[in-house]
Design a binder for these strands. Sequence first.
RNA 1: AGUCCCAUAGCUCAGUUGGUUAGAGCGCUACACUGAUAAUGUAGAGGUCCCCAGUUCAACUCUGGGUGGGACUACCA
Length: 1133
Amino acid sequence: MSKKFPEYKGLDLPKVSNAVLKMWDDHDTFRKSLRSRDGKGEYVFFEGPPSANGMPGIHHVMSRAIKDTVCRFRTMQGYEVKRKAGWDTHGLPVELGVEKSLGITKEDIGTKITVDEYNKACRKDVMKYTDAWEDLTRHMGYWIDMDNPYITYDNRYIETLWYLLKQLYNKGLLYEGYTIQPFSPAAGTGLSSHELNMPGCYRDVKDTTCIALFSLIRNAKSEFLFKGIDTDGVKIMAWTTTPWTLPSNTALAVGPDIKYVRVRTANPYTSEPITVILAGELIPSIFPADKKLEYTVTGTYKGSELKDIDYEQLIDWVKPDDGAFRVITGDFVTTVDGTGIVHIAPTFGADDYRAGREHGIPPLMVMMSDGFMGPMVDRRGRMVPMDDLDQAFVATHVNTATYGRFAGRYVKNEYDDTIPEGADTIDVDIAVMLKQQGKVFRIEKQIHTYPHCWRTDKPVLYYPLDSWFIRTTALRERMIELNDTINWKPSSTGTGRFGKWLENLVDWNLSRSRYWGTPLPIWMTEDRQEEICIGSVAELKIEIIRSIDAGYMQRNPLENFVEGDFSTENYSLLDLHRPYVDDIVLVSATGRPMRRETDLIDVWFDSGAMPYAQAHWPFENKENFSEMFPADFIAEGVDQTRGWFFTLHAIATMISDSVSFKNIISNGLVLDKNGNKMSKRLGNAVDPFSALATHGADPLRWYMLTNAQPWDNLRFDISGVEEVKRKFFGTLYNTYSFFALYANVDGFTGREPQVPMERRPEIDRWIISLLNTLVKEVTERYDEYDITPAGRAISGFMTENLSNWYVRLNRKRYWGGGMDDDKLSAYQTLYTCLETVALLASPIIPFYADRIFTDLNALSGRYSEESVHLAPFPSYDKNLIDKDLEERMEIAQKMSSMILALRRKVNIRVRQPLAKIMVPVTDNGFRQRFEAMRPLILAEVNVKEVEYVDDTAGILVRRVKPNFKLLGPKFGKQMKEAGAAIMAMTQSEIAQFERDGSRDLLLGGVAHTVTTGEVEIISEDIPGWLVANEGKLTVALDITVTEELLHEGIAREFVNRIQNIRKESGFEVTDKIRVVIEDLPFVSAAVQKHSDYIASQTLALEVTLAPAAAITGPSARETDIEEQVVKVLVEKV
RNA sequence: AGUCCCAUAGCUCAGUUGGUUAGAGCGCUACACUGAUAAUGUAGAGGUCCCCAGUUCAACUCUGGGUGGGACUACCA
């Protein structure tokens, strides 16, 4: 054991980090921390798996700092906090990355490259940045078990997913359906919303739009609309930007509360008089003044009145099922553009599809030659060619005369490279056709934004696609109930963003038509009548055996798999990915072959199922699962609200009827210093590796966690990190260095018996009191997952109270020889503060805190633990908290600062002693408090005495201030008047008021009594004195410098100058010297009188005066005293 | 479009059930200190507390409506 506290030449935090990392490695500290103390048991934490195929960014440091801080804190509290790392390995970003690096597209998979090769590439690619991630994790000090991570592509992981899916299947929560999804005909694939949100996907395009006229059918329901018209029928106007969807129209939607009008006007193309219906609000946009269209409003209706009215099919190409061509109502209808009436084509719009379902409107479908029903546009983006239609269907449902000319046409010219640029689109042709038929009111080119496929650059269609869904809507109420029990930080994310999301929940579309992901474990017969959902590898093996018996498979790919053996070797004998699972053909109950649905599942299911899958539950860990679920705590960015947070919650609710996590911090984004989102493209992304290397992990963590609440967006500015380094770490370092320097000189070890608290000086008890207050506050804040205020409290204590006040005021106690109780108390007090700060701050700044802790502890041996992270979190002793003392010290601090300000005002330096200050005291309590602080204040401001002034002498100028909080409710509306009356009191009235304890105010002729308890009386001024006041405190300074004071001041100036010369000359602190000062009239008396004082302060054996001529040689200096040049000689003896 | 967050000094942020002089740090300017010195202190300048309306004796604080920035979800005639 070293005999001294280590001293350092400078603060090099990256170096500290590396040394501490090595120490952790050498001692296996992380693993040692994974245990439960004091019977505290488990504290469960879930790590959200990052995808290792992208480089980590600075925002990962943010969320991981939060996680690490909480986990370290709970560990110190005695909990066992297991932390299993995880990797998200499936999904689109991986596939896209691979396709890019291989230079292929999705269409090439299965042709240019086999699925097997492709998936092997994905498996390899997904871990390509693992090293970088592990490096970041290590260097930022994030403690997590990276040796045994869960990996979502692992067969055991997938097996749990299959088990969960089968549970859902058995509960009837997994079903097949179809929805309208973005689809790229050019790429032949559906697109995820993520793909649609890629930059540049939404582009302005010029499309042909038209306002179509739908003729109403006159019958009992619509008769009221026909009353009093003089035209041939009534038409509804509906606007569309995609005329190619008009042939698929099966309904029109109106807003139930929107006002509609009946208007008589003329068809601009045929001049035929017509009567039309549209939203009243939109008349100005449909009949703009400059177009000079005549129109007359002939009726007004509410949207709800138009419900269920029938109309004629606009374009008679294909006959739909019964129930089409009706007016329906929908909340989504607005009057911001168009006509206030929305054309509904359930096969080509999400809203349309939903509205159609709700109102029982059939979609317009055609039967293909293979017998399947489909939308009127095929997957290549063409109006289905005649030859592809079922001929019987054509005979009964298709108007070949009208449709023939359009069959086979692409709905967007971009889909066919042979169509010349600028050629008419089908939209134009349809519009022209309608014009000829008098069924259109206006045709216009219009620019609007439309999504494009990011890969082919061609427009996207909204298209009905088959999908498997999880019926999350069935559990909606339960999810909302359970969510109410979760402690969200910030709470608004839980009730707001997440709560609202749950309320508006739709079923979870699970299907992805990709290759690299968890396969859907459902096998079906070709006619889709029989199906099976597989829930484990063992089950699959049995089904394969049955299939072999039935002759559908030759050999069993799982033949060597041993059920119940969960070793890596056993699970390496198989691969549950495509294409292997696709090769498995199972046999149905009736003996027919069943093939797997080719879909993969949404990767969000992978990550949301991690509480189960990381444990390979229920195959393993079935008994102790309650120790692993649910999580006490998780944390990720707020962007995970609808991602990971939701899937965790949804799966836990459906599988376990439980929350998945009890406490959650959702942090905001990390923006650049100008508040812009960081992106590689803009070049404003901060590289976490260089930031860590330059500044060290601790300042980065401290900055990120204390600069702003984690859920506010952080404007990341590296100069903020530097500031933190200077301010907080610099102070901490300086304070430790100061301590170590003198402790080593004095041989203080920290093992000395503690000086009892009651025998320590007031100022020691004060800082100890503050320290205990700090421990209390920090513990409470950490407990509430409020890291930011905890860190700020530590920083405030450290810089303001400990360094700037306690150390500064007590420096002298550490100097000089010998070790008495006072000095020992000073050391012990400072030691305790440093040690406690290290413990409190260690969850946030694990490296430097451990360095300070181990440096202190190595000598003192106060803790048996070898690292701060293994030590128990400090507890506070409420007996050591003395609020009155804290208040007293506050008075002292304020008073000192006020007096120093006064000195500054009249330019009297602190070295110049002054005779006295005057302090008004009108109550005894204050006097006692001040008296206790008197020596401290006087020393700090270099004043010799204090005089208390009570008002008996009548020299204080006093002021009364109303206490609005007390008087407000009493006076109500008269408060303003009362306040003015109170403040208008004269000095004698105030004196009288104080003697009586109450006073009557006359307000509006009524007397009201005000007591002294309801006001604040302060002594504001002492006429003739230099006075400062702040709040209730007032102090006056006697600025008369007598000759005697001046001499003392001059003596001090000399001490200062001589000290400087000693230092410049490179003398040791212990060198003895000889001093000769030039004998000038204004210094001689001062020097003679105070020569002993000067000598004692500067370790001079003698201090003499001599004429200037005698002061020569290399040791002679000139210095300024009171703006005059004085020659001084300082020599070592 | 919906939901949510944010808006206080040049910058980053505090501001505790509404109470009358709105604070801190950084930066700037000036001064002081000089046995913590690659440190420290004091002071000064710097604010329409985003805007408007309401509630109230009293609004930075509460309510409503805007504006601006950001996020997520959705994408619609």
